[in-house]
Design a protein around this nucleic acid. Structure first.
Ligand SMILES: NC(=O)c1ccc[n+]([C@@H]2O[C@H](COP(=O)([O-])OP(=O)(O)OC[C@H]3O[C@@H](n4cnc5c(N)ncnc54)[C@H](O)[C@@H]3O)[C@@H](O)[C@H]2O)c1
Ligand SMILES: NC(=O)c1ccc[n+]([C@@H]2O[C@H](COP(=O)([O-])OP(=O)(O)OC[C@H]3O[C@@H](n4cnc5c(N)ncnc54)[C@H](O)[C@@H]3O)[C@@H](O)[C@H]2O)c1
Lengths: 214, 214
DNA sequence: TATATCATGTGAAGTAAATAACATTAACTG
DNA sequence: CAGTTAATGTTATTTACTTCACATGATATA
């Protein structure tokens, strides 16, 4: 039975991690797994694993555990990864280059089908098999490839303007790497990836541990 | 009065964001700010802003608000950013290159003082003013620059081994970009930056919104 | 077929975090 | 200088999330 309770974002995050862990087990030929083993593998409690899965149904067999391949497929499906997702990216800088060449996204069913920049010296350059395009080409690419998700990898000052343009072009979700909170309509899904924040959690925690450094 | 209650990690995360927002206000010449303005600026509730700050003391004036420069300095100090942090990084690939050249880290008081790789074709190459070094040089660099934090930007399969080596070299905290949960002693601070997860939160949420795409 | 063992699924209990509400203090106004 | 407005700091309330505990169903064994 599929419940339609509000699912905590923390649960979705863990589901993504479980799912990748299950893929690894599957590649290693493991066919069956328990909530305890998953828990050990990803660093949470077994109850948490079962609770997270319970939001979406019953996938295991009591007394036995879970079938790795099946649970992997279920988690992928829940995450919307039982199909292909085309993405566009704005900002062909250092980070944009790294993201474009990253094979990890393809492995999860993502393809970057358009990279855009407003720097004339970058437009026309190639990143793998993609040509960097001018911003004006975005609407066509989005239409042709049925794109719903955009990635922002521009400098901070350009991020809001780029986001607005993406939405005008029909994007429904944005992954933003610029360290700036975007102001967007509620119906747009936005998530920020902020690398400095994680680093500063580390310095915060180290701050309590020792002050031996000057 | 500084309390030493357990501070939620979400609070530290927001503090990092407040602090950057305050820097922006300061650069723009704003001298005074209210919790409501901060809240609007970063997308949380005013009560949340005050609650977060309350973990660490009283920084405002009732009826008035906060002095931007002062609050900025306080937040930076809380995060441990009232001083310089030297970092080392392993993995001079695409992501490593982007991170090394990223000026945003310097602006928050971080310097990458060593980049290491095990690929002989990369060792000796330059990234800005840094030379890519062999792994064996790590202990010396760490000692010379009093480094406590390491960044992992190697492929997944190498991440655990690299983390172990870092700890052997005396690192106390690790920022890990490889999509793999590391197994490390409790006294080591670790945070993972997992870019796929954020993307998959978007696909999860879009999954509920519409199934119009095939 | 009875018995022991195992691990899921889930309601209840416990913990943590976010929001709301308000008392307190500062500044402004006429 | 009393009265009004503003915005903090903090307590109370609500909401959300996690952990616990165990009944349930499955498998294995003799
Ligand atoms: N490089 C990193 O490791 C890193 C780390 C954390 C955060 N970030 C953030 O990611 C973003 C990109 O970083 P980067 O290092 O790749 O920067 P970059 O300067 O190398 O690249 C930015 C690209 O965006 C393009 N651009 C600028 N304005 C534009 C506009 N209005 N429309 C379209 N394209 C535009 C530029 O031409 C450039 O190619 C920044 O916001 C940065 O703060 C980067
Ligand atoms: N590129 C991205 O946009 C991106 C996005 C998300 C996650 N990641 C993750 O970040 C990590 C790095 O990604 P990348 O794209 O830069 O990969 P990359 O292959 O470009 O670079 C990896 C580097 O690590 C070095 N390396 C390999 N084994 C090593 C070892 N044992 N010791 C020292 N160095 C070693 C390689 O020589 C190479 O230079 C990966 O784990 C990847 O999954 C990257």
């Amino acid at each position: 039975m599929v419940k339609t309770l509000r699912v905590p974002e923390a649960t979705v995050t863990r589901l993504s991690i479980y799912s990748r862990y299950l893929e690894r087990l599957d590649r290693n030929g493991v066919t069956s797994v328990s909530s305890g083993e998953i828990a050990d593998g990803v660093g949470v409690s077994p109850a948490q694993v079962r609770k997270d899965l319970a939001y979406f149904g019953e996938f295991g067999t009591r007394g036995v555990g879970y079938n790795v391949k099946d649970l992997m497929r279920y988690t992928l499906k829940i995450l919307g990864l039982d199909r292909h997702w085309n993405l566009v990216m704005v900002g062909a800088g250092n980070l944009g280059y790294a993201l474009c060449t990253y094979k990890g996204f393809n492995m999860r069913g993502f393809s970057i089908v358009g990279v855009f920049d407003n720097d004339l010296t970058k437009i026309g350059k190639r990143i793998n098999d993609l040509e960097v395009l001018p911003m004006e080409s975005m609407p066509d690419i989005i239409k042709d490839h049925n794109v719903r998700i955009g990635i922002i990898a521009t400098p901070t000052r350009a991020a809001q303007e780029v986001a607005d343009y993406m939405i005008k072009c029909g994007m429904q979700a944005i992954l933003n790497f610029a360290p700036l909170p975007l102001t967007l309509p509620d119906y747009i899904e936005v998530r920020n990836v902020d690398l400095s924040v994680k680093l500063e959690i580390l310095t915060f925690n180290l701050g309590f541990k020792s002050a031996q450094n000057v």
